[in-house]
Design a binder for these strands. Structure first.
Length: 1136
RNA sequence: GCCGGAGUGGCGGAAUGGUAUACGCGAUCGACUCAAAAUCGAUUGAGGCAACUCGUGAGGGUUCGAGUCCCUCCUCCGGCACCA
């Protein structure tokens, strides 16, 4: 017999399989179902490491198994070859990223071949291939044309080390000794916040569907939950709080309409009536010749329409806004406020040219305008079809303010009603809350330091009586990042003196604060504070000494003991007081033990009489029940609660609205008790730590905690109180009614839009041309791909511009729309864009007309199983789900979800149980292990190390690898035992093995499947013989796990076909039946012995034999029951 | 703090509510060898001479019977976190 020479065997078969194109997968095979098994394609970092083996070679077992089970399996691979890891390494190695990457790909292709995986290499894709990224660009442009890709000037995360912006998902919050820091997901460097104009993708539009569509997916719960947490949907309501400024001053609103408009449009009539409802005056001149306007006529008409003074709010819409700028320039005295709605100060319209472009003078004196207005608001909708973000920013810069973002019901604020316009004209604060039920308890509002109303109020300088103080606070907050603000949980804030809001439910005037515990980017950047029912608001209210009125009361329904509610009997309502009374000297509390009833021990308590004050009632009850005269009220404890119980003395159910009060006796002065009272109960003094266990009151836990540690806000379930007509409603009921009466339903998300532009060379160029006249314009399809130019200097500049910006020949181009001079976008796309659709390309990898033909996609999509790393749960997996949905909405793919099943892979640690890293010196080089022990050993060891269908982390155990190698050696040597005749004694274990290996491997429990193969080999070695057909069956079972050795041993038998082309063997249940079974004999469930019995024996016989066997033990014991589970156990249950 | 997942020999791990620790590693002893490695054979949860007792993070519960189901708690891992 030859030696087991793994190197020779493995090379031989790898070549044979490649030559025969054995794993080239047809699109369809008659009579076979398609199965699409996907693994995340690797970065071509240069070398395959153990993690790659674990990611590719282990799922390969499933691919091979399914193939033998008659499925047409596609198991593709490619390279995610753009991006920072490759680029940084290229820079380090002083090579061009493309050269470096292509060399790596070539090397890694060879390494992949050495794994013995059944990848279909004819479908290989690479994201750096222009034939691939042409379609990345094309898809991006489809999104751009649909408004899903847009540019936005916002604070972004900038990694100073990688010199590029990062998406929110690519920022990792880490805890350090100095608090939490935001770090770069790739390099670990701390990120900084920068204000920059970046390309965003509107993933937030899909937030709901990304959450809801998770429900039916057959995915592990932890992956779904992580995504839900990341998206962070909150359901609640938006509620508007009108403001009163100063002495409720009334203003004169002068409204200038736009091009082709007039004052009798519904939106202007609506706006006018809304403003007049609030008592303001509205002047709305009709500007002449709206279809062919002239600057002079419009400005003159506007100026002559009325007088302008410090009470005037000048509002201009669209071209009216331009007119308004000109009007203000010419004023002598300053006006109160200038508001532009959909305004602009240059001619760069997003959609088309307009006839007034030439007749207007596009020159403005920003300084003069600023000096003639006390405050300015530039209202802009990012979805405006005509006005770009850049245009709005230009206008805002001219006027020295920030753009205020609003949402129009119809693009360019052209709807019949535009609530956002009204909101920014008539002072209103909009809040988002998940607890609209607590609206009556909203006793103040808190605005984020960045809230536009704060900025607006500060512009005026006179609106806020404490303007300087507020300005100081806002400036201080602006210097801090989100994380820095969170460093101290201590609440800070400043009251906005001179402004009040009106609680729309209670009608009460409530104060406003600015505080940095409210985040500007979440919800509306403003909250209604309900201190009684929110931890943070409670803390703030305590610090600022604000009232904390309770609006939700817990309901306690007594179900145990003598005072349990008697269901079905009427419930009498009453107000009641419970007095906690402390001894005048000792730390003891006054308790009452009722004499006529069992086990009722309470504090002093009783009903509140009509018109009686709660504290008075408490004092009265103390006097009546205990005789003590001098109780001093200290404070109320916890919340008012509804307690439902059976009142034994009054013989009826009572629903008490219970107030808890804390008193301290000033001295022991005491009136003698009446005989009547004395007969009912006795007084007991209990020490502090005894009270809790002594009393029988249900709510004592809640109350006592708050007595000892101070009151806490109540956030649990209950019933509304102090809420007018809403009293008595449950929280859920009140949420609905309150929202309907005072607000609108609203969902808010933690998810933010996906920033996709990167300031690096090695990526897909964003296929956009910037034109001074036309704005950002899509590169036409016939000019795609926009190729990444080969450049000399590809190092990142670090100044927020990609290296492409230095390549004149790339930058300078003509506008595809107007043919004028234009500049190319120089940022590149996040590589997560490349990987958002690669699995579609595998279905039709060589198509030059489409990214993938529809019918070809449908052969394979959706993906049957996608295996990858847990770190991609809220990155690649989320992005690609979004991307697929967006393609789905464009009719470009057939499914809303790309992955039928997703599973996360475990992590292989170094032998020391630590993450493998060069610095730790614990890196296992798979190439070296393969050279020594063979690819089959490495594959099989990785599969054996732990269950593949669960997430864990497994240390690489060098001895364990040797163990698997031993198994293969023994398998090799077992050849010598092969004989013609079948070995009957192996049939049972062989068929059990067929069953278990097939079932376990299908579920990706490769570890137990391999264990069963070992069980069989152990049995075979004991027999020292095996029939040829049985041997062949064994080789088929081994084939998915150790494909080379199985193929070699198979070929030794003279078969010309591949073992991998065989059908998976079938098991015969009849052969798996054991003749005899060991039966456990138990007494009261404890095993007292075992007995071997024929499988077919009757229950009675089992009992007879078992009784015989443990006769001694059963002596003197009375057996009450006997439970027999044939083939497993017999249990004698004794009377105890 | 909220949400998810997991705690089983010396180690990786295995167990449709039915004899806990399959399989592998390690360890101990033996065979082969001058010796070692490799290989083969045997033993291996703890305590006890033994009969036996105790054992799946802790404590309760359901059940004839619980690693498995229910409740409370602890620890570890992952996601989110001043998110209204």
């Amino acid at each position: 017999m030859k030696q087991y020479d793994h190197t020779k065997i493995e090379k031989k078969w790898q070549k044979a399989w490649a030559d025969a194109e054995q794993y080239k997968t047809p699109d369809q095979v008659k009579g076979k179902d398609n199965f699409y098994l996907l693994v995340e394609f690797p970065y071509p970092s240069g070398n395959l490491h153990v993690g790659h083996w674990y990611a590719f070679a282990v799922p390969d077992m499933l691919a091979r198994l399914h193939r033998m089970n008659g499925k047409n399996v596609m198991y593709p691979i490619g390279f995610d070859a753009f991006g920072l890891p490759a680029e940084n390494a290229a820079i380090k190695n002083k090579l061009n990223p493309r050269t470096w990457t292509e060399q790596n790909i070539a090397h890694m292709k060879n390494q992949i071949a050495s794994m013995g995986t059944s990848f279909d290499l004819s479908r290989m894709v690479s994201t750096i291939d222009p034939a691939y990224y042409k379609w990345t660009q094309w898809q991006f442009l489809q999104f751009f044309k649909k408004g899903l890709a847009y540019q936005k000037d916002t604070p972004v995360n900038w990694c100073p080390n990688d010199k590029t912006v990062l998406a929110n998902e690519q920022v990792v919050t880490r805890s350090t000794s100095s608090g939490q820091v935001a770090t770069c997901e790739r390099c670990g460097h701390e990120v900084v916040q920068k204000q920059m104009l970046q390309w965003n993708i509107k993933i937030t539009d899909y937030a709901d569907r990304l959450v809801d569509d998770l429900d039916p997916l057959d995915w592990p719960n932890e992956i779904k939950e992580s995504q839900r947490n990341w998206i962070g949907r909150s359901e609640g309501a938006e509620i508007d709080f009108p403001l009163e400024i100063g002495d409720n001053k009334k203003y004169k609103y002068v409204i200038l309409h736009g091009f082709q408009s007039s004052p009798d449009r519904p939106r202007w009539l609506w706006l006018k009536s809304e403003l007049e409802k609030s008592g303001h005056e509205v002047v709305m001149p009709s500007l002449p010749n709206p279809d062919d306007p002239s600057e002079q006529e419009w400005v003159e008409t506007a100026i002559n329409a009325t007088t302008y003074d410090e009470n005037t709010v000048l509002v201009g819409h669209s071209l009216g806004a331009v007119t308004a700028l000109k009007v203000v320039e010419r004023l002598k005295k300053p006006i109160f406020r200038l508001v532009t709605v959909g305004g602009f100060a240059n001619r760069e319209f997003k959609d088309k040219k307009r006839p007034f472009e030439e007749t207007w003078k596009w020159e403005f004196d920003g300084e003069k305008i600023r000096s003639k207005t006390k405050a300015i608001t530039v209202l802009h909708d990012p979805k405006d079809h005509a006005i770009s973000d850049a245009q709005a920013k230009k206008l805002a810069d001219l006027l020295g303010v920030a753009v205020t973002t609003g949402t129009s019901t119809k693009s360019h604020f052209a709807g019949d009603k535009e609530p956002d316009v009204l909101m920014w004209l008539r002072p209103t604060i909009r809040v988002f809350t998940t607890r609209p039920d607590t609206l009556f308890g909203a006793t103040y509002l808190v605005l984020a330091p960045e809230h536009p109303w704060v900025a607006l109020a500060l512009q005026h300088k006179t609106v806020l009586k404490n303007n300087d103080e507020v300005q100081k606070y806002v400036d201080k907050a602006n210097k801090k990042t989100d994380l820095e603000r969170q460093e101290s949980k201590e609440k800070t804030g400043v009251k906005l003196e001179g402004i009040e809001a009106i609680n729309p439910a209670s009608g009460e005037k409530i104060p406003l604060f600015v505080a940095d515990y409210v985040l500007s980017h979440y919800g509306t950047g403003a909250i209604m504070a309900v201190p009684a029912h929110d931890e943070r608001d409670f803390e703030f209210a305590q610090k600022f000494d604000l009232p904390i009125p309770q609006v939700v009361a817990p309901v306690i329904h007594v179900t145990k003991g003598g005072d349990a509610v008697r269901e079905g009997e009427p419930m009498k309502k009453r107000d009641a007081v419970m007095a906690i009374v402390k001894h005048w000297e000792k730390d003891e509390y006054l308790c009452i033990e009722w004499k006529e009833f069992d086990e009722i021990r309470t504090f002093i308590s009783g009903g509140i009489e009509e018109g009686e004050d709660v504290v008075e009632a408490g004092k009265r009850e103390i006097a009546e029940e205990s005789g003590y005269k001098n109780a001093k009220f200290i404070r109320s404890v916890g919340q008012v609660q509804f307690v439902e119980f059976y009142h034994q003395a009054k013989k009826g159910n009572v629903r008490a609205k219970m107030h808890y009060l804390y008193f301290e006796l000033e001295n022991g002065e005491q009136e003698p008790l009446s005989a009547e009272e004395d007969a009912k109960h006795s007084i007991v003094w209990k020490k502090r730590d005894e009270v809790r266990s002594f009393l029988t009151i249900n709510e004592i836990g809640l109350i006592w905690d708050q007595l000892e540690h101070g009151n806490r806000p109540y956030v649990g379930a209950g019933e509304l109180i102090n809420s007018g007509e809403f009293d008595g409603l449950s929280i859920e009921g009140a949420k609905k009614k309150m929202t309907a009466a005072f607000g609108r339903e609203k969902k808010t998300y933690r998810l933010r839009d996906w920033i996709v532009s990167r300031q690096r060379y090695w990526g897909v160029p964003i296929p956009i041309v910037h034109c001074d006249n036309c704005g950002p314009v899509a590169v036409p399809d016939d000019q795609l791909p926009v190729r990444l130019p080969d450049v000399e200097d590809y190092l990142p500049s670090g100044e927020g511009k990609s290296p492409l910006a230095k390549v004149d020949s790339f930058v300078h181009t003509t506008c595809p729309k107007c043919g004028g001079e234009a500049k190319r976008e120089t940022d590149t796309l996040d590589t997560f864009v490349d990987s958002s659709w690669y699995f579609l390309r595998y279905t039709d990898p060589h198509n030059s007309e489409q990214f993938a033909e529809n019918s070809k996609q449908k052969n394979w999509m959706p993906i049957d199983l996608y295996s990858g790393g847990a770190e991609h749960t809220t990155m690649h997996v989320l992005y690609s789900r979004f991307w697929h949905k967006a393609l789905f909405d464009l009719g470009l793919v057939a499914d809303a979800e790309p992955y039928t099943r997703r599973m996360n892979r475990s992590i292989i640690l170094g032998p020391d149980g630590q993450k493998m890293s060069k610095s730790r010196g614990n890196v296992i080089d798979p190439d070296a292990v393969v050279a020594q022990l063979g690819a089959d050993t490495v594959r099989m060891y990785l599969a054996f190390i732990g269950p593949y269908n669960e997430v864990g982390s497994y240390p690489w155990n060098p001895d364990g690898v040797v163990g698997v190698r031993r198994f293969l050696e023994r398998l090799w040597k077992a050849q010598q035992y092969v004989q013609k005749e079948e070995v009957a004694s192996l049939q049972n274990v062989l068929h059990k093995t067929i069953k278990k290996v097939g079932e376990d491997a299908t579920q990706m429990k490769f570890n137990t499947a391999i264990a069963q193969l070992m069980v069989f080999l152990n049995a075979l070695e004991k027999e020292k013989k095996i029939g040829e057909s049985q041997w062949k069956t064994l080789l088929m079972l081994v084939a998915p796990f150790a494909p080379h050795i199985a193929e070699e041993l198979w070929s030794e038998l003279g078969d010309q076909t591949s073992v991998h082309a065989q059908s998976w063997p079938e098991f015969d249940p009849k052969l798996m039946v054991d003749d005899e079974k060991e039966v456990a004999i138990q007494i009261d469930g404890k095993t007292r012995g075992t007995i071997v019995l024929p499988t077919a024996v009757s229950k009675d016989e089992i009992e007879k034999q078992a009784r015989l066997k443990i006769e001694v033990r059963l002596k003197g014991v009375k057996v009450a029951r006997v439970i027999v589970v044939p083939g497993r156990l017999i249990n004698f249950v004794t009377t105890r």
